[in-house]
Amino acid sequence: MAREITVTVNGTPHTLEVENRLLLVHLIREKINLTGTHIGCDTSNCGACTILLNGKSVKSCTILAVQANGKEIQTVEGLAAPGEMHPLQEGFKENHGLHCGFCTPGMLMRSVELLEDNPNPTEEEIRWGISGNLCRCTGYNNIVKAIQWASAKMRGEETPSTEPEFVS
């Protein structure tokens, strides 16, 4: 069973014929060929597939492509023009918020909504806010720091130092 749907991905409308059972993440990765959105599990636990659907962060492995019909999708590729960076992308780079980069697109997309809802979150709020996204590499310290850094930048405030802090 297939049907025609129209989705707008990063501002560009796409009309495609899709199988009813096609997952949104596969639509994005394999039909629209945007492979920045990743797949890390089959139980909706890891968040590697997180995108924005009409501005809300969702796990795109948990939604059917047909449910996105008529909706706006934003993926990591749409965060900034190629070669440019959204403050969150910059924050992750400056604060070493990524190692292998596999969880990163999902973390970034989740953080976009987190900062929209709460432009000045505490560490605790950030930790709860990203608790639906798993990272196996970073130990989360620097992801928290990256989001704090981006939130300062987005509020137009001075950004905290990005030098690593050591006890001595």
Binding site: R29, E30, N33, L34, T35, G36, T37, H38, I39, T75, V76, E77, L79, A80, P82, M85, Q89, F92, K93, E94, H96, L98, C100, G101, F102, T104, P105, L108, E163, P164
Partner: peptide
């Protein structure tokens, strides 16, 4: 030096190339 990572740009912009991205 705590040099910022050279590999980050592609990962942050969704341009990493992992096995499942190969078609």
């Amino acid at each position: 030096h705590s040099m910022k990572r050279k590999e980050d740009a592609r990962f942050l912009q969704g341009k990493g190339n992992y096995v499942d991205d190969i078609k």
